[in-house]
Structure formats: C-alpha cells, structure tokens
Nucleic acid binder design. Structure first.
Lengths: 225, 225
DNA sequence: AGCACGCCTGCACGGAATTTGCACATATGC
DNA sequence: GCATATGTGCAAATTCCGTGCAGGCGTGCT
C-alpha cells in the first residue's frame, strides 16, 4: 500500500486530503506541525509527502530541506500565496511539485499520481543520506564524500537498516531480525563482527563515529561527519 | 483499554459522550472544569482528550496549551460557535480535530477513532517533555535546555517511566515493576542508587529537584526548571 | 580437480561500562 | 526519641561489547 504523509496544521484540510487520497486508493497518515512532519517524514514510511508551507514549529520549506538531507522521497507543496511559490521555485530545495490553495482534491490527486508515476522507479532505489554518507541499497552502492566504499552484502543490509531510522537505537535482536529475518538465530558476536568491519571501512573513508553503540540498549546511526 | 478523558462542564453532555464512547469500546473518565481537565490531562492516563471550549476555571483553549507543554496526547475540541472554531484553527494550539455542538454521538466516535488511528503510531515515539527536559526513549536521548545528557539504560527507563505520568507519585514497587517487569526482585536500595545517579546527572545539567521524593509514598517527577 | 580468496560465522577472552546492594548516615513522621 | 524510610560511599558482581582468530563455504581462476 502506498502511504502518503499529509503535513498541514489545518485539520479540515487534512481531512479533505485524506478523504481524497483514500478514495484514490492511497493510505494517508498525518502530521499537524512541522516538527511532527519532520519526524514522520524521516521515518521512511511515506512514498510521498504533502507539505503545507505555513506550519507551526517548523515551516514546510525548512522541513523539506531537513528531509532532503536524508531522503529523496517526493515532496509536493501546498501553498496559499504567490510569494511562497517564488520561494519554492527560487530556492532549490528539491520540491517535486506544488499546488496552490484553494485546490480541487481531484487536481491534487492527479498531481500526486503524476509524481509517483515518474518517481516510483527512482523512489524504489531512493538514496539514504546522512552527512557525507550516501547509501543506495538497491544498487549496492555506498559513498562517503563522493568516494565509493565497497561493502559486503551483510554490511550493506545492516547499514541500510540503521540508516532508515537515523538516531533511533536498534537493539541487537531487532537488528538481527531486520537483517536475517525473524526466527533466524545468529550470534550477537557475529553481528559485532560485521559491525567491526563496517566501522573499519567507514572510518577508513573518513566517517568516524558513524555507528554508535549505546551500552545495554543497542546500536544507533550517529551523525556522519 | 484505551481511556479517553471527557472534559465538559455540562453533566448531560458528559453522559452522552461517556455512553457513546463506552459503547464503542473505550473507557471514559471525566472532568467538570478546566482545572480538573488539566490535572487529569497531565496524568498521562488518557489516550485522547475531548475538551469543551467553554468551561469554568480555565477554558479549553488554555487547558490545551498547558497540556501541549508536556504531552502530545491527541485533543479533540467541542465547540458551539463559529468564532471559537476560528480560534482553534487560528491559534496554533495543537488541536487534532474539533466537533461542533450539537453533534451526533456517532460522528464523534468516528472522529475519535480516526484520530487514534492516525496518531497511535506517532504517539508511540513522541518525545516526552517537561520544562527544559526532553526525553526520547526511542533515540535514547535526554536533553536539558538543548544540552545532551548521557544516561544509562536503567536511568533512561526510570526517567521515562516517571515522565509518562508527570506529577504522579509512583511507589517504589510500582517503579521497580515498571522498569524490571513484575515478579523480578530488586532491592529498594538499588533503585535508590539509580535515582541518585539520575539526580546527579540532571542536577549537573541544571535540573534541580527534577525527581522528588514523597516520604512514605514514592517518587514523583517534579517541575524541571 | 586443485587452489586462492573473500565473506560469513561465531568462540574465547579481556576490558569496560553498568548494575546491584551492603553497611552506614540522615531524614522524616508520629 | 523511636521506628521507618530514604540517601550515600563504595566495591563486588554482572552484563555488555570489541577483538583476535579460525573454520566453513562458495566462487572463480588455473
């Protein structure tokens, strides 16, 4: 099911969008302010994000910039004013399209479909980004500051899992489950071995402290400077 | 059981809501004025709060703003007048939805379900806030006034447990159960040790009296100035 | 087939971080 | 002032994690 994140502070607009999208066969989930939008946006759950520009906490443009640091998910802006449109177009913040308020739900759904249609193949192998680290699991590609870093299959899976939820601490069992599938037993030491190799490679390429361990809790994707 | 707080000064409306909600499988508890609503709302017991705007002591909008300082619990407003709706929408106070009086119980329950459905996953990883203290268990992150405070696993669990019910006094056995699971014996002195370390760290970061002791009763999350 | 190589796995071990709780000091309520 | 409850210094016990190392397996080359 294709899930779409609706980020708007106006509940009635969220409802409008939700209903329209659900009728069109999408699943929708919502954020009422910029902070929530950012959080949910980063979760990697959405196939597309509809962002209102004027939101409390963080405005849509800021949210967009933040999300772009870690993800290529398509973003469609909602905007009320001409000068906001200029900002979308002027600044290269990576928007895929925009719709002005008031809008017809029908038109909006059409835009959403259009964007998905043209980005779907790209979205399938979206690049995970974090700091200077870029990871494309589908193409089995890892780059640090533009330099390719060769990773083995396991390393790729582990890193990819960590990067889809940056900052989140994953327990070792969770990580093992994610990489090997549930009910498959692998020693914790094995995971450690892979982590060691991964860390070695990342460090050699200049990413120190990319993979943090939180004692007694698990593993977390650190900043990636 | 999902519990919902009904805050309205009109007993007949409370009854109406209660019956409708309980028929729908929710549990309800009530507040008859703004002050009570605030107190119960802060307790963290409610999965959702239904707030009437016109209430004695403190009006719904004020209650909402206060609750938003410490919690992301979904809030649904009850309102009678159009100009109140404007205030809900205009002020960025973090309401999740609103229903105008008179309303059909059926519709209200539908709204409640809709809100819960879409916020349930988000609420699970919401950041707990209190004063200058912010805690995100999923990220294993604790910040005071923006400064990260390193916590150990136990400390995080204890603090997180305390913060999900701010102002509530938890007995030591309750706290131990919550952190270690029931039927696991740990000495009270052990809990004290952790509390001491926790207090030390919080104080060092500027949060004095964050964790209060209520002699003979238990532990409580204090203000966090 | 024989062989080299890279990758995956996990054991054994040591060091480090954390947890636990004892023994004792203090505080609190009655 | 007594009984109980809570705080503190400290060190042992425990748990957790990283590392060296080696066997197993598959792949590709000769």
């Amino acid at each position: 099911m294709t899930e779409i994140l609706i980020a708007d502070d106006d509940p009635s607009i969220r409802d409008l969008l939700r209903i329209a999208l659900e009728e069109a066969g999408f699943a929708a989930f919502e954020a009422a302010d910029g902070e929530a939008a950012l959080e949910l946006g980063r979760s990697g759950r959405a196939a597309l994000i509809i962002l209102d520009i004027g939101m409390p906490e963080r405005d849509g443009l800021e949210v967009c910039r933040e999300i772009r640091k870690t993800s290529d998910v398509p973003i469609l802006f909602l905007t009320a004013r001409q000068d906001e449109i200029d900002r979308i177009l002027g600044l290269e913040i990576g928007a895929d399209d925009y719709v002005t308020k008031p809008f017809s739900p029908r038109e909006l759904v059409a835009r959403v479909k259009a964007i998905l249609k043209r980005t779907q193949p790209a979205a399938a192998n979206a690049t995970l980004r974090r700091g200077r680290l870029a990871l494309d699991p589908d193409r089995h590609l890892c780059e640090i500051a533009g330099e390719a870093v060769p990773l083995t299959a396991r390393e790729m899976e582990i890193l990819s899992r960590l990067m889809t939820r940056p900052d989140h601490v994953l327990s070792r069992p969770q990580l093992v489950d994610a990489v090997y599938g549930t009910n498959i037993h692998v020693s914790d030491r094995t995971l450690d071995s892979h982590l060691r190799n991964l860390r070695g490679k990342l460090e050699a390429a200049g990413c120190i402290d990319a993979i943090e361990t939180v004692h007694g809790v698990g593993i977390r994707m650190g900043p990636c400077r």
